[in-house]
Design a protein around this nucleic acid. Structure first.
Lengths: 202, 202
DNA sequence: TTGAGGCTGGACTGTCAAGTCCAGTTGTCG
DNA sequence: CGACAACTGGACTTGACAGTCCAGCCTCAA
């Protein structure tokens, strides 16, 4: 069994270096395209360090999923905390579209694209990805719930369903953006989300 | 360069056997998880047959994309041709949800999940996938266009944008269905598509 | 300061996969 | 029926990768 929590600062730093390097490589080349040699070279870390901190390749990939989730939610946390106003939601949507534009409409969602790569191969990875989506969606659901409490959403509206639909539009929009190399696809999808949410306004 | 169009019936049969076997394996194990030995064993076909009909592994995978697109559109073609009535759209949505339910909410969209696997690795594969989505979306856009001509959709509605939004909801819903192993996710997403489309009704 | 355990380096092994090669067989067409 | 191309079988080469192993180095606490 690999070391879970390194006790020394040096150990923690090494483990973090490995996960960061692996996450970057997975984002660039896909999970299947990353070899442990690649990870070791980028970290840098030797072979035995990888196996000191992780059971095996799959274990490392799962750590990458968690790290990637933290990163994705981290970069948008400011927006996610303000999803309880129409303006806050619009700002979030605009930031997501800008992010795709500036990135050349490449890569899609770092979490979403892992679903197709790992979802059917590693059940634990699937659960980790699902947990990531749950955390993401919870921010939106909470925001919508607060809007409903303030009577900005109809009492009959279901924040949970609206949040799920919005996540579907976001992920689907990112998929179409990636495959068509066109950030306008996400813009269209999020405009639709806007229509959908406003249709539930009080 | 590999043979593009086998001239003999035997050759065509062999090529088709290879593509079918490869497509099944890709659907089961993901593109990265399929080896040419696996394909050869299932087809069955020998190594040199694979390289007789395809340039290399990537070339075969691209053929799989086209074959998968044909299959996916083929199974729903009856529905796709009737997307010019509200009832036809509802039937399509219901069939998609049923398909996920009966499949245990596994695998997501056979085309969509390939985007994350191949989109950033092989530009030609990305184009083939984009072409598949275009064909799919065109059916919906045509149906909505016919509805608009019959004044069932508002004159100000944009069938192209509505079709894109619906595709995003479909793909996003399938992604959430796959990662959460819950067909209700697709149901929610397609209900949202219904709301969106009806908001554009004349 | 010394020993135990956390940590590190890198060589080594076994496996498996992509792609090559060529000899042999089958089908087609003049 | 003969020649040529289409097609087929499978051994072989080469390289890459996951996982193992063990010797040696830091770090900290007693």
């Amino acid at each position: 069994m690999a070391v879970r929590e390194p006790t020394t600062a040096k150990g923690r730093a090494t483990r973090a270096r490995i996960v960061t390097a692996a996450a970057e490589l997975v984002a660039e080349q896909g999970a299947a395209g990353v070899s442990l040699d690649d990870v070791g070279a980028r970290a840098p870390a030797s072979r035995s360090q990888l196996y000191h901190y992780f059971d095996d390749r799959d274990d490392l990939i799962r750590a990458v999923i968690d790290a990637t989730t933290d990163t994705v939610l981290g970069v948008q946390i400011e927006y996610l905390q303000q999803l309880d106003t129409w303006a806050g939601i619009d700002r979030w949507f605009a930031a997501l579209v800008d992010l795709q534009k500036s990135g050349g409409a490449r890569g899609g969602c770092p979490i979403g694209s892992l679903v197709g790569q790992l979802g059917e191969r590693d059940p634990l990875a699937r659960e980790a990805l699902a947990a990531g989506f749950d955390r993401w969606e919870a921010h939106l659901q909470d925001g919508l719930g607060r809007m409903q409490a303030r009577r900005h959403l109809a009492a009959t509206a279901d924040p949970a369903q609206l949040a799920t639909s919005t996540m579907a539009l976001l992920q689907g929009g990112l998929l179409l953006t990636q495959v068509r190399r066109d950030a306008a696809q996400l813009r269209i999808a999020l405009d639709a989300a806007r229509v959908l949410l406003h249709a539930a306004a009080a």
